[in-house]
Design a protein around this nucleic acid. Sequence first.
DNA 1: CCCGGCGCCTGAGGGC
DNA 2: TGCCCTCAGGCGCCGG
Length: 302
Amino acid sequence: MPGAHRGPSERVGSGKCLAKCMPELPEVETIREGLRDRLVGKRLINVENLSPKQLIGDVADAVGQTVKKIERQGKVLILNLRESSLLFHLKMTGQLILVENGEPELSGGHPVPKFGSEVPNKTTRIILRFSGQETLYFNDLRKFGWLKVLSTAEVKNEPLIKSLGPEPLSAGFTKPYLAERSAKKSGPIKGFLLDQTIIAGIGNIYADEALWYARIRPDRPAGSLNEAEVGRLYTATNKAIELGIKHRGTSFDSYVTIEGERGNYLHHAKAYHQTECARCKGPIEKKKIAGRTAHFCPRCQK
DNA sequence: CCCGGCGCCTGAGGGC
DNA sequence: TGCCCTCAGGCGCCGG
C-alpha cells in the first residue's frame, strides 16, 4: 500500500448512497489488519473527544502508552496498549480512518469540513494521535458507536465481551454446537444468527447471505431446522464470513477501510440488497424479521 | 428464561 | 421550496 494512506479519505462518500450498513466481523477484521500494520509500536500521544457520550472511561489513563497488539472479538476492535485497552464498537455508521500527518488541532476553531469530503469532518467524534504522525479518526454519523477505555485485565469481564459466543471459522463453532443451540428455539433463524451470544460477529448482511447459501428461509423457527439444514447453515455461515474477509468487507455506504476505501464484498452479495436471485433468477423478497429487513429468495429458500 | 418491541441518533428520500 | 413522515439497524433495556 505504498502511498495509498498518505492523503485524507477523499474517496469516502464519493458514491451514491444505497443504504446504511454496519461493520460486521469481516469489516472489523479488515480494519484490524490495517491498523495493526501501522499502529503496533506507536505511542498514544493525545485524545481529542468531540462527542462526550461516546467515550466511556478515562482515556487519560491510556495516554502515553505504546500499542502492543490489536485484536478483535466479534465486532469489537481492541487496541491493547501497555496496560490499558481501547475497545471500539462501530455499530451502524462508525468508521476508523488512519491518516499520516493529520490535522494537528481541531479545537482551534477552523471550520469543520462537510461529511464525506475528508477527515476530520462533521461526523468526526474522537481523534487519537499517535507517535510517528499517525492520526486515527473515529467518525460516526449516528453516534451509536463507542470507545471504551479499560485496563487490559478488565477486558475479559466487560459484559458484552464476556457474553460473546464463538465466531464463525473458529474451533468453538461446530455443527453440533449450532444444532444444540438452535434446538427448542421458537424465534426466527435470522434472529438466531444475529444473536451475538450465540455466534459472534454476524450482522444483517452476512445473516442474509448465510441463509441464502444454506437455502433456508429467514423466518423459519430456529428449532424447526433438521440435521441436514443445520449442516448447510454451518457451512454457509463460514462461507459467507470467509468471502467477506477475502473481499475486505462490504462495499456499502459508510463502511470504509482505514484508508477510506470501500470494500468490494457487495459486488459478490447473493441476497442482501439484491433484486434478483443469483441462483434461480426469481425476485428477491424483502421482509421485516426480528426487527430488521431480511432479503431472501422465496423460491430457493425453504 | 425467552421473545418482541422500543429508544438511541442522523440524514436521505418520498409525498404533498 | 419546505415540511413531515418513514426508513436504516446493533444493542441495552423493559415488559409480558
